Amino acid sequence: MPTITSVLFDFSGTLFRLEHDASWLDGVTDHQGDPLDVEAQAELMRRMTAPVTLAVDLDDEHLHAWHHRDLDPGLHRKVYLEMLRRSGIPRVEQAKALYSRLVDPSAWTPYPDAGAVLRDVSSAGIAVGVLSNIAFDIRPAFEKHGLDAYVDEFVLSYEVGAIKPDPEVFRIALDRLGASAEQTLMVGDSEQADGGARQLGCAFALVDPAPTAERTDGLLTALREHSVL
């Protein structure tokens, strides 16, 4: 196995997770005017953060927005507000309030081992990149937790005009890190999107996008299995 000299990490479900606060849904009601139960709240959060799965039926206009959401912040907002409406949130102001949480970097929680893994990988002289299909700037999330110092490059789809699994976005990340595909490990929670790195010859490690309280050492385990740490 080639020596790993660079690691690319996905963001959502890999390094960070959007863990909702119960207060976000205070006063949120369904089409019948009833508060959302715990199961409905959990499903709503899953739909807001699922990397590739579309959980509602959309018309052609919003389906186009869905497929291009991570390239254009305007399309991202448009399709998620529609998704929330079709998921049982009929009041526009409620949908807008929930959407604002999704795109607020300070609302995202790092996985318990994310800080230690980023620090140890960087300290070992291994280049670190964050490669995300996303339509808002996630750098403030890293800055809030003091993790930005361990990231050499952020490659965000809406900034570079390409999304995973398109090989182009992985090439951009590798070029910015000055890394070779054969010596790069991609870590992510989506076989479909993040696993696309294998098309270029990168190694790939899949992690479970479980709640942060349940996945305490998933990143550490993934890197140890690839002899990075």
Rank of each mutant, 00 (worst) to 15 (best):
K144V: 08
E168L: 12
G129I: 05
E191G: 12
V187H: 07
S122C: 04
L156D: 13
P105N: 02
V155M: 10
A193Q: 14
C202H: 05
I172H: 02
A197M: 06
T109W: 00
D137V: 05
P165Y: 09
A116N: 11
D208G: 06
L102S: 03
D120H: 00
P105M: 00
A173W: 12
R198C: 09
Q192I: 13
L156H: 05
Y150P: 06
T216Q: 12
G146K: 07
R119T: 02
E143W: 04
A135P: 00
V121A: 06
E153L: 06
Y111K: 01
L147G: 03
A181K: 13
G146S: 05
A141L: 13
Y158F: 15
D217N: 13
V207K: 04
G188D: 08
A135S: 15
K164P: 03
D104Q: 14
A127H: 07
G161R: 13
V130S: 06
M186N: 03
S123R: 14
Y150S: 12
L174C: 02
M186W: 04
D148C: 08
A210C: 10
C202P: 04
G178E: 14
D217Y: 08
E214N: 10
F136N: 05
V117Y: 02
P140S: 09
R119G: 03
I134V: 15
L131S: 07
A213V: 02
D120M: 01
L206K: 15
V155K: 04
A181Y: 01
E182Q: 14
Y150E: 02
M186C: 08
K164W: 07
S106W: 13
S106E: 15
A116W: 11
G178V: 10
D175E: 15
A135Q: 08
S100P: 09
V128C: 01
R101C: 11
L206G: 05
A181G: 14
D137W: 04
